[in-house]
Deep mutational scan, measured.
Amino acid sequence: MTYRVRIENADGEVVTIEISADELREKGLTLEELLPPNARIVEVEEVEP
């Protein structure tokens, strides 16, 4: 499974990243732990691999 994640950074700019569930598991991280300081998740969407 892959996630498309929209993130708002500290400057108010919204960027989109895609990350797979396998990648998260391998790194032992959650989506929140990948965020840079002062950023927030705006939207998470599951996409087909």
Rank of each mutant, 00 (worst) to 15 (best):
E48M: 14
E32S: 09
G28C: 06
K27S: 14
I17D: 00
G28Q: 08
T30N: 06
A21N: 07
V5D: 00
A39S: 15
P37K: 08
V15I: 13
A10K: 09
N9E: 06
N38A: 05
T2M: 14
E46R: 13
G12Y: 03
R40V: 15
L34R: 03
V44H: 01
P36H: 04
E8T: 05
V15R: 09
P49N: 13
E18V: 15
L29Y: 05
L31F: 07
V15N: 08
E33L: 05
L24D: 00
P37V: 07
V15G: 06
Y3E: 00
D22Y: 10
E26G: 08
P49S: 14
A39H: 14
E32W: 10
R40H: 14
S20N: 10
T30V: 05
A39V: 15
V5N: 00
E32M: 11
I41C: 04
V47Y: 11
E18Y: 15
I17A: 02
L35A: 04
D11F: 10
M1K: 14
E45Y: 11
N9H: 14
M1F: 12
D22M: 12
L24M: 13
A10W: 13
E48G: 14
I17F: 14
E33N: 07
I19D: 00
E48F: 15
L35H: 01
E33Q: 12
D11T: 09
E18I: 14
E18A: 06
E32K: 10
E43T: 12
E13V: 13
E45P: 01
N38K: 04
V47I: 15
E18C: 06
T30H: 05
A10V: 12
E23F: 13
R6W: 14
N9V: 13
D22R: 08
T2Y: 15
Y3I: 08
R25M: 12
P36T: 04
A21P: 04
A10P: 11
E18Q: 08
I19T: 02
P37H: 10
V44N: 01
D11G: 09
I41T: 02
G12H: 05
R25C: 07
I41Y: 03
L24F: 03
N9R: 14
E26M: 09
E13R: 13
R40C: 10
E45G: 03
E26Q: 13
